[in-house]
């Protein structure tokens, strides 16, 4: 209820980087609350601080202003209940699918036990890669590699899943297919998802809520619920109110693009 069910909470968060050409304000006065098991898409032009938002949530960096909390605890370091999926799958090229998925166990605890392998089999099946356990990343398509990346993030069964433009390196068809599969995964095993993208259709297809950010300094300019129930399919996406919503998002994004 109320605060108790908040998974992620940003309070007046600012992030300033020291760069060679002086301080760079990546985020400015960001206030954001994501409820448990909510699927939130963050939409914004590149360089607006989306990845910074994700890194702050992951505890990979601390904000220079304000406070980031996860389950009402200030984030001071990475947490066990947060998983990350990156834009590029960034798998270990020398390790097969199974070893890539169990890598978090090996890396964190130094060994991979029988339970770990059971869990890996589960998540590998969940992302549809059963039978590919012994393949090397170089033997997989881009879409399959990203499935491994998702399986690796799900392996430790995180409650919060942070995804940084996970499908942006994929071709359009694969991208749509992966979106639907992600929804299935999320419905089968609910998680709080912060999904970063700069694709409006992707945000509309996947999210309960869309956060729109402005270009530097990154600010939240809109925070809108997606007018669409679940489960979703292509026909639902073609509904006029959904089209209007997408058009509205587009306007918000274009308005925030700096004049050339």
């Amino acid at each position: 209820m109320g605060l108790a069910s908040n998974a992620i909470d940003f309070q007046a968060v600012g992030q300033v980087f020291a760069t060679e050409s002086g301080p760079l304000t990546a985020l400015d006065d960001v206030n954001l609350t994501i409820a448990q098991h909510e699927f939130v898409a963050v939409l914004g032009p590149s360089g607006c601080g989306k990845s910074t938002l994700l890194r702050l949530t992951a505890g990979l960096m601390l904000p220079t202003e304000g406070r980031v909390s996860v389950y009402r605890q200030p984030v001071t370091r990475p947490r066990d209940d947060v998983g990350i999926v990156f834009q590029q799958a960034t798998l270990l090229p020398w390790a097969n699918v199974l070893d890539n998925v169990t890598f978090p166990a090996k890396h964190k605890r130094g060994r991979v036990g029988a339970l770990d392998r059971e869990r890996a089999a589960e998540v590998i099946a969940a992302v549809g890669l059963k039978g590919f356990e012994a393949r090397l990343p170089s033997e997989l398509s881009g879409g399959m590699q990203q499935r491994v990346g998702i399986a690796r993030a799900l392996f430790l069964n995180p409650d919060i899943l942070l995804m940084d433009e996970p499908f942006s390196a994929l071709d359009a068809l694969t991208r749509d297919a992966m979106g639907y599969e992600l929804l299935k995964l999320w419905q089968a095993s609910p998680k709080t998802v912060m999904f970063i993208t700069h694709s409006i259709p992707e945000a509309v297809l996947l999210a309960d809520r869309v956060i729109v950010m402005s270009a530097r300094p990154g600010r939240i300019v809109a925070d809108l619920p997606v007018p669409l129930g679940r489960p979703r399919d292509e026909s639902a996406l073609r509904a006029p109110e959904v089209q209007d919503f997408a058009a509205h998002l587009r306007e918000l994004l274009i308005a925030k693009e700096p004049a050339l």
Binding site: P78, Q87, P104, H107, K108
Partner: peptide
């Protein structure tokens, strides 16, 4: 990203 993965673990 892999270094971040390592740190996040």
């Amino acid at each position: 990203e892999l270094i971040e993965l390592s740190r996040s673990l």
